[in-house]
Design a protein around this nucleic acid. Structure first.
Length: 289
DNA sequence: AAGCAGGGCAACCGCGAGAAT
DNA sequence: TATTCTCGCGGTTGCCCTGCT
């Protein structure tokens, strides 16, 4: 036989915690600790609560050094970077933000940061691909947060930012392969890009897949690696070779209607190229279909 | 002032992995 | 070894507040 049931669910209080309950729980844990057993804790502390509820209340609200309130830009950047790398592993992300709880970060992401990201990705209303106008600093920062976060972290495997971002956006799809196509180096004066290898632009345009361009700045120049990513649906009945269909599924999976509109509005009828051209002199972020 | 809609956030739900019996 | 529970996690829900009409 196993253990006894954790609690009598009919006899436990649910809903918001009162100040008295908070005080009881806090007082008990500060004096006695959790004892490694949350299930028996509420009874010992004189609370008519489920152990899980006590644990949640303690971890998310009562424990010392919890920080509430606005997130800093630095915290935003860490969240962006880690989310791009590991996805919605909020507990791991929380481990890198002192005083923040996974619940806090999750809520913050869902209510604010995701919208902020979408807003930042969207081009200005008068966006033109040929424009050379630098984008806003906020976008500059956002793009750079997609660069590898240097983690001495406990994740098993970190994807590169573009992998992570794409995997996140792909939803039902999986990475089939990633192929390095070369390196772009832009000159200090701006807009001249040199492909260090893979000079066959014809092949670039005819090979199906997504080309990603991510930037690494060093000194006065920016080095951009070019990666072609090939994807397929996990549902083998709907294996897609049609990149247009794939791009549509991507957006729907991510639930980013705004980005869908953005892509639609950015897609030219004369080619299959979709661009997120951020019009920066030193940083570009491009999707190429 | 009242009604409504949307946003923010605390709390709950359900699942998987591992532990206890 | 099988069964059942605990813990920790991510996803979801629902209440409350605020702003708009």
């Amino acid at each position: 036989m196993g253990r006894a049931p954790c609690c009598d669910k009919a006899n436990v209080k649910r809903g918001p915690w009162s100040p008295e309950e908070d005080a009881k729980l806090k007082d008990y844990i500060e004096k006695q600790g959790t004892g490694g057993n949350w299930i028996s804790l509420p009874h010992k502390a004189g609370l008519r609560r489920c152990g899980k509820s006590c644990r949640l209340r303690w971890l998310n609200y009562l424990r010392p050094n919890i920080r509430h309130g606005d997130f800093t830009e630095e915290e935003d950047n860490i969240i962006y970077s880690l989310y791009a790398s590991i996805g919605s592993r909020w507990s791991v992300i929380a481990a890198h933000l002192h005083g923040r709880t996974d619940n806090d970060i999750k809520n913050y992401w869902n209510t604010k940061l995701k919208k902020k990201l979408i807003a930042t990705m969207a081009p200005p209303p008068n966006h033109h691909l040929a424009s050379a106008t630098p984008s806003s600093p906020s976008h500059y920062n956002m793009i750079n947060t997609l660069l590898p976060y240097n983690p001495s972290i406990s994740t098993n495997q970190l994807l590169t930012p573009h992998q992570g971002m794409m995997m996140t956006m792909m939803g039902q799809q999986q990475l089939l392969y990633q192929e390095d196509m070369g390196t772009l180096v832009n000159s200090p004066n701006g807009n001249n890009f040199i492909m260090s290898h893979q000079e066959d632009s014809q092949e670039q345009s005819t090979n199906k897949g997504i080309m990603l361009l991510s930037d690494v700045r060093s000194g006065s120049s920016t080095t951009s690696t070019v990666t072609r990513v090939k994807m397929e649906h996990r549902d083998h009945h709907h294996h897609e070779e049609d990149e247009r269909s794939m791009s549509s599924a991507v957006i729907e999976d991510y639930g980013m209607e705004e980005i869908k509109q953005l892509i639609s509005s950015s897609c030219t009828s004369s080619s299959n190229s979709l661009w997120f051209d951020e019009n920066k002199t030193e940083d570009k972020f491009m999707l190429y279909y």
